[in-house]
């Protein structure tokens, strides 16, 4: 019984990740805010060992893709890391406004 409880607790612990905020940044907020665009990209790693930060570029490309002819303004970026057992998820969450010029 104790063994099962321990195993269950360990499983639950590995599935629920604790999140830590790395940085936040904001650019000027525009008056026109009708067209909100959001995107995120993530990168998983084992015990914090990373070989590339290309997931950040992926977020930029996705954002540009949502506003191909307009001006992207009011960019709000959160960079956070969620820690699971031995695994970490680095994530960039971006929200902005797409305004046609």
């Amino acid at each position: 019984m104790l063994k099962n409880t321990l195993l269950f607790s360990l499983l639950a612990l590995s599935l629920t990740g604790c999140v830590g905020l790395n940085t936040v940044s904001m650019t000027q907020v525009p008056a026109q805010r009708n067209n909100v665009i959001t995107t995120s990209s993530a990168s998983w790693n084992f015990i914090g060992i990373n070989f590339s930060n290309a997931f950040v570029d992926e977020a930029v490309d996705k954002l540009k893709g949502q506003c191909p002819t307009g001006k992207i303004e009011g960019v709000y970026t959160k960079h956070q890391t969620t820690g699971y057992v031995l695994m970490f998820k680095r994530e960039v969450i971006v929200s902005a406004y797409c305004n046609e010029v």
Binding site: C18, G20, L21, M26, K78, S95
Partner: peptide, 17 residues
């Protein structure tokens, strides 16, 4: 370290808007 979201940052941004 046991927190599961960063919603307080979003809330601050919403207040700014």
């Amino acid at each position: 370290g046991f927190v599961y979201d960063t919603d307080y940052v979003d809330l601050a941004y919403k207040n700014l808007l």
